[in-house]
Design a binder for these strands. Structure first.
Length: 279
DNA sequence: ATGACTAGCACGGCTAGA
């Protein structure tokens, strides 16, 4: 099954491009960020026409996340408080609509849009760190159910030098500062793995190019859109790619889609092989 | 060039993104 993530920078502006991409790639699941639309105005019919259903958690003008799925989604949870109902911080940080999760084929897929943080000196930067700390609590609460876990989205953080076109200049700045990298590494722990790096060790693979300064034409990008898998799913992953050409569309999003192909549910043969290598 | 582009809201010029 193919699971994809794409920050579309307004679902209404990008609707034609998303429909075209879905028809072309036909993923089982597409997680969207920055839908920028209140729930009553979400264009769900466009997805239903293509044989998909969609669950969404949005707001007017800013943020907003959605999960587009071929199969009916189970146990959809909206925001941090969908997982942390008694947590006051989760309620406060949930005012911005940045989290949605659901079960699909027994996989818990969590779709997130991490705050950008603006600048290190901005009040938005500590908000970003608080938000990541809450995501950490959220995923620990989720873990008690023992579901195979896939966390995807726009993380607004490049973890390593090879994820940035100019690490010498940009390391330490927003999206590449030590505190936010540490906060994301805490969220991942030993449990979650960046599946793109299982298949591609080289630099020069970006998922976001700034609209400004001719960044796309100069191929000056960042890899900030990630897919993280638990061990069980990682062992079944067959490929992970960035659909770079989409950034070359007319009127593009500034992000390209990223997708992973996982052999799931595991076949009987997979399980026999897995048993051979266990113990 | 450490330069500036896009979307939403609302209809002019902000905020926000990254």
């Amino acid at each position: 099954m193919q699971i994809a993530t794409w920050n579309v920078n307004s679902i209404r502006t990008r609707l034609d491009q998303v429909q075209t991409w879905l028809k072309d790639v036909q993923p089982e699941l597409l997680c969207l960020q920055e839908t920028k639309v209140d729930d009553p105005l979400f264009p769900h019919q466009a997805f239903e026409d293509l044989g998909y259903q969609v669950s969404f958690h949005g707001q007017k003008a800013y943020n907003g996340v959605a999960i587009v799925s071929r199969q009916p989604l189970e146990d959809v949870r909206l925001g941090f408080s969908g997982e942390l109902p008694e947590d006051a911080e989760a309620l406060r940080l949930g005012e911005q609509k940045r989290v949605i999760s659901a079960l699909i084929d027994n996989i818990r897929v969590v779709n997130i849009y991490v705050p950008n943080g603006s600048e290190l000196k901005s009040e938005k930067y500590p908000y970003k760190l608080e938000w990541l700390s809450c995501l950490n609590r959220y995923l620990k609460a989720q873990a008690t159910r023992g579901e195979p876990l896939c966390v995807v989205g726009d993380f607004n953080i490049a973890l390593e030098a090879r994820d940035i076109h100019n690490p010498a200049r940009l390391t330490g700045e927003i999206m590449a500062s030590e505190p936010e990298r540490e906060a994301l590494l805490d969220v991942l722990g030993d449990r979650l793995h960046d599946v793109f790096r299982v298949f591609e060790p080289d630099t020069n693979h970006w998922s976001w190019w700034d609209y400004r300064s001719g960044a796309w034409d100069r191929d000056r990008g960042w890899r900030i859109d990630h897919i993280y898998l638990c061990d069980e799913l990682l062992s079944q992953a067959k490929s992970c790619v960035i659909h770079k050409h989409v950034r070359g569309n007319e009127k593009p999003s500034d992000h390209a889609p990223v997708s992973v192909d996982i052999s799931w549910p595991p076949t009987e043969n997979d399980e026999q092989i897995s048993e051979l290598f266990s113990d």
